[in-house]
Design a protein around this nucleic acid. Structure first.
Lengths: 210, 210
DNA sequence: TCCTGTGAAGCAATTCACAGCT
DNA sequence: AGCTGTGAATTGCTTCACAGGA
């Protein structure tokens, strides 16, 4: 069966939600309550889950802890992932401080830059290497995911370096489409902050002024 | 006609792409080239544009500058927007430094926090206020968009403050669903960094290990 | 009664295929 | 020949509606 991408996106939100519920000691939850917490509908919640199995009890709802475990397994989120951040500027540094990553199993093992002032020092305890060492460090530290946080001008220079490395997935904050010339499949997800603001502007205009 | 949300999302990417092309002095572009630059298909590009009018010349393609202007107008991106950042931690600070925003017309006018060490000082030239002053500053500075960059624990405290203010749109970096109890429509867009990593993990697993 | 799980229906988005312009 | 613009076909996603278990 083909699982909708939108379902995967929501699954990640369900995991987040279930974690919060577990922390607060909530034991049971229905698809109705879940939907309220995640801006969707109960039917959607049930349908999303149904792609992967039957996790609920009729008339009762879902067991928070059990469902969380199942979803984490589906998303492969239970195991640890080693991450590198390319670009030790303000965004890269902010991301390296982000506690949320480590809490859920994403461990930033290395940062990369070209500024000699930054190289061979540590930022928040994370070693900063020259970008030339990327492939080498990726191998040594078993890094599977790279976060790209470099300015637009620098993207060209790092595309080839990434393509040649063994990295499997990229979270890209640079506002350009990465052009990875490689036979391997590399998963790329874009986070374009400016795009989000554009969309907000459009939605404001169309919700407010008509 | 009802315009697909996915179309709006792509429109923002087209704008970004056209800006780059314009800077590089490119005058003409076909839907085929556009598609290559934006990870989509030529048909999709043409269909997206067709919701808003006819911008191309048969057999020739699109005029980069003219198309850019049209799309900017559609997205209301040509006019200026005043923005506030709530949370002067590392993420908020990184966002305040982000040059991309100002370049495209989003002007960060104020930041908010509760830490007395930060209040009444400036970060990157932007004044930091106590969150209590939020409504007041929003009015005075004509702020329409708020960027939420506070830790999860702090979200509860700011939800009501935002709901009461005149803000029209929110870009939310906190990994929780905002619960804005207000009659007004406020546009909320979430950027959940952890969610993105979850999705990458899933996609890696499903592209690589089967 | 309350809530899950799921085929079927309905709706939305994408892709196809081609007419038509230059 | 080359490329746009767009109805029609197709694919994909969501919502409906209800059977069935506790």
């Amino acid at each position: 069966m083909n699982i909708p991408f939108a379902t995967i996106e929501r699954l990640a939100i369900y995991v987040r939600c279930l974690r919060h519920l577990k922390e607060r000691g909530v034991k049971k939850i229905s698809s109705y309550e879940m939907a309220e917490h995640t801006r969707t509908t109960p039917e959607q919640v049930r349908k999303d889950l149904s792609y992967f199995g039957k996790f609920g009890k009729t008339g009762e709802g879902y067991d928070v802890e059990a469902l969380l475990k199942k979803l984490e397994k589906i998303l492969k989120t239970k195991r640890k992932w080693n991450v590198a951040i390319i670009g030790a500027g303000s965004l890269g540094t902010a991301l390296s401080k982000y506690k949320g990553f480590k809490e859920v199993g994403y461990d930033v093992k290395a940062m990369f830059d070209i500024d000699p002032e930054k190289i061979n020092k540590k930022i928040n305890g994370i070693p900063v290497y020259h970008i030339e060492k990327f492939g080498e460090v990726v191998d040594k530290e078993n890094i599977e995911i790279a976060i790209v946080a470099v300015p637009t001008e620098a993207v060209q220079d790092i595309e080839e370096i990434i393509a040649k490395s063994k990295v499997k997935g990229i979270l890209n904050f640079a506002p350009v489409t990465l052009n990875l010339k490689t036979r391997r499949k590399i998963v790329v997800l874009d986070v374009d902050l400016t795009q989000k603001l554009y969309i907000i502007s459009y939605l404001i205009k169309n919700k407010w002024e008509e």
